[in-house]
Design a protein around this nucleic acid. Structure first.
Lengths: 204, 204
DNA sequence: CCAATTATGGACCATTCGGTCCCTATTGGT
DNA sequence: ACCAATAGGGACCGAATGGTCCATAATTGG
């Protein structure tokens, strides 16, 4: 009656020898670096350091693994950002710093990875419903963080209250995505700085 | 001494039966709709309505064909936009209309194709030098159009001159890319309108 | 200590990928 | 009329793809 299950609750039999979390992190890095399609099963096995059967046993298939990676990424990122936000004393500066971080990628010779959510939205949100849902969920999560930052800034008078925090947040999110695309298209730091300035100026 | 050539100049022997331009347009539509990797040779043959040997004879290979498509797209788009720009009497409205056109895609159930250049920048500008160069060239072309529009608007007092036209143009280009990503991520028209308003407001 | 259960490695599979090649049909130039 | 040259159809190819399956090792609960 009880079929083989793909989750990790029952504990009888040989215990798993690898750390799910670590494996997930490695897979996420890989997807993040080169995208979904360009990441082959073989690549995944290499970076995750496990065998094909273990991977399929633990995660089902490539698509399901990817969805879990999207979730992992989103949570990690959002937590990290929230942490930074709560430790800063200028939410406005926090927003400016994040833009600056995006621009910093332009200077790097390699590894301009962007943001996994943005990349995925562009790569296959149009074609895959499950992925699309995961991206939407992740976007909402990020939006929450940005909205919180802008609300904080508005409370401290660092940003005008004429525009609702959510609208500003969405504008900011869109601007970040645009900047990331510019980076991928090969724009230089000198070209990107003025853009960031204009974005921050809009958040008057 | 004279090897088989992949171009279309010599005319001796059987003449080509298909229209290169039409074939290029079909291929471009396909790449535009689903991206480079997701477009298989078989797909191309179907939409271009020619045989594998004809394709390889005329275009070399998939990558070379893609580059030509990028070029075709870029020229077509830029010409079209320049045309619109020269026929409008308000360059500022022209810029606002273009943003509106991007937002219109969000309402469409299917075929949110975005912009081939932006898509390509995100998909493989990081991995392929030839493609990267083609994207850079295309971006410059688009930037020229936007810069021209903004200069015109500045001359007519529709946009402030405090910021150089090129900086504004790059900001605008980045904003368009960001909006496109939001569309792909599934944002609704209601969410996108305020973003467009803020962008146009920045182009004071 | 045994039975039940799971992990793991690796062989194996069908499909699809981009790309090559050959054969024949068709045309223009002379 | 004939030759040179190209177009086009389709068979074929090696490599890589994601995925399945089975035999074996390892571990736990009873």
């Amino acid at each position: 009656m009880n079929r083989t299950v793909h989750n990790e609750c029952m504990n009888q039999g040989r215990p798993r020898e690898f750390d799910i979390e670590r494996a997930l992190e490695s897979a996420t890095r890989q997807f993040w670096a080169v995208g979904y399609e360009a990441t082959s099963l073989t690549d995944l096995l290499k970076v995750m350091k496990l065998s094909k059967s273990s991977l399929y046993q633990a995660f089902g298939n490539k698509e399901a693994l990817f969805i879990r990676c999207l979730d992992y990424f989103q949570n990690t990122m959002a937590d990290d950002l929230l942490d930074k936000l709560h430790r800063t004393d200028s939410p406005r500066q926090f927003l400016a710093d994040y833009l600056e971080g995006v621009i910093d990628e332009a200077s790097k010779t390699s590894g301009r990875k962007g943001c996994l959510l943005v990349n995925t939205a562009n790569e296959l949100a149009q074609r895959n419903a499950l992925v699309s849902a995961a991206v939407a969920k992740g976007s909402k999560h990020m939006m929450k963080v940005f909205t919180a930052a802008i609300q904080l800034a508005q409370e401290r008078g660092e940003i005008a209250t004429a525009v609702p925090a959510e609208d500003f947040a969405r504008y900011y999110f869109s601007s970040v995505s645009g900047l990331r695309t510019m980076v991928k298209a090969g724009a230089s730091r000198a070209e990107l700085e003025p853009i960031a300035k204009l974005v921050m100026a809009t958040l008057s």
